[in-house]
Nucleic acid binder design. Structure first.
Lengths: 207, 207
DNA sequence: AAAAAACTGAACTGGACAGTTTATATCATG
DNA sequence: CATGATATAAACTGTCCAGTTCAGTTTTTT
């Protein structure tokens, strides 16, 4: 018997449950996924699942948290400024776009946006372990550029919000709405190059 | 008896049904709203609702469509370039931000993103009657600026995607995720001015 | 005022699904 | 190999909800 609201991590099949839940939630969303689907996918009995997770909501929260951490770690891997600022930013942009255009990234976004009304904590969890990390790293990166005299930015926080938005131009919304399943590398490059161009045109001291 | 999938618009209480549905869907989302809630809110019998709409999904689709049209018409009201380009864009940005930051606009976005997996047509419906209209008008506006020699833009379509994204910087995501309920006028102005500054820095011929 | 159309209320059907229970089986380890 | 922890299958409970039905009432039309 669990203490109410507690997740118990011991036991052989914990990973199995989580992996099955991940698969089904990512495929069907929160409401669309039934617990029976999940136990079938996980190859586990319902009683086992409920011995680990007190309810469906907390199971989903665990999946979302894990997913965000994995994603943002992959996406955020050092922007360590190689000599050339433009190159560094272009590469960072590429990683970000891959971050939010991946199947899993997109699906997490959809679910989180859709459910953040009913589960407010999920919105914060997602923001902190994803977008907020990107923002922090970008701010540090930009500030360093300013300190080194490569960039001239009055409002670094604003700039750190602007750049990721520019990288979404024409890509993110059509995907989130299911109008497009994917984009070609050329389409993506066009947006990234355009983002970096626009950004550096204002903020670069000398290019 | 309706032809399958057909919506019947005749009858006294059609508007009443739609208005009740609007209220409840906007408050509770699609899954969260029960048809019984809707008929109660609308002051109408369940049989009446089902004499107009063959099912819940099509009722929601109708609400979303109506909502988008109303919104985008309000938001898009002429960007007729008053002499000053910067002023015109700043004002257009203000309208756009008000467009997607309003309670209803935000809620439609949440629901549509959340449900566009299960109902693909809803994503397209929303995109075409909202964001696509803004995009078209912006493209025409920018092209005119280019023709008049005020702007220099290689890729007008890209620029028309970039500008709205810039207007979302730091505002849209925290709202969509429920981290912030609202923003002060100062916060919004900062983002709008920043967007116009960045945009015109690259694209304006002479400012 | 009669006929037709629209509406009502309330009960009902059928299905989906979260979470529980129970009796039984398997595993890990000392 | 014995014992306690972990897992299982399957049936069950209770709830929620979309959509239907129907006998009767109100409104509109003619």
């Amino acid at each position: 018997m669990n203490a109410p609201g507690q997740i118990v991590k011991q036991g052989r099949k914990w990973d199995q449950v989580l992996e099955g839940a991940r698969t089904v939630f990512m495929r069907d969303g929160f409401e669309g996924a039934s617990v029976d689907d999940i136990v079938r996918e996980a190859g586990v009995s319902k009683a086992t699942l409920y011995s680990y997770f007190p309810d469906k909501r907390l199971l989903f929260l665990e999946v979302a948290k894990t997913e965000c951490q994995a994603q943002s770690e992959a996406a955020v891997a050092r922007i360590e400024a190689s000599g050339n600022l433009r190159e560094a930013m272009t590469e960072a942009a590429g990683r970000m776009v891959r971050f939010f255009m991946s199947d899993v990234g997109m699906q997490v976004y959809r679910i989180v946006v859709g459910e953040s009304q009913r589960f407010p904590e999920i919105g914060r969890e997602f923001y902190n372990s994803g977008p907020a990390k990107v923002r922090d790293i970008l701010m540090r990166f930009l500030q360093k550029g300013v300190d080194e005299g490569k960039l001239k930015i009055d409002d670094v926080a604003l700039a750190a919000d602007q750049f990721p938005e520019l990288c979404k131009a024409g890509l993110h919304l059509p995907m989130a709405l299911g109008l497009r399943k994917s984009f070609t590398d050329d389409e993506i490059d066009r947006v990234i190059v355009g983002a970096v161009d626009l950004f550096l045109c204002k903020y670069a001291v000398a290019d």
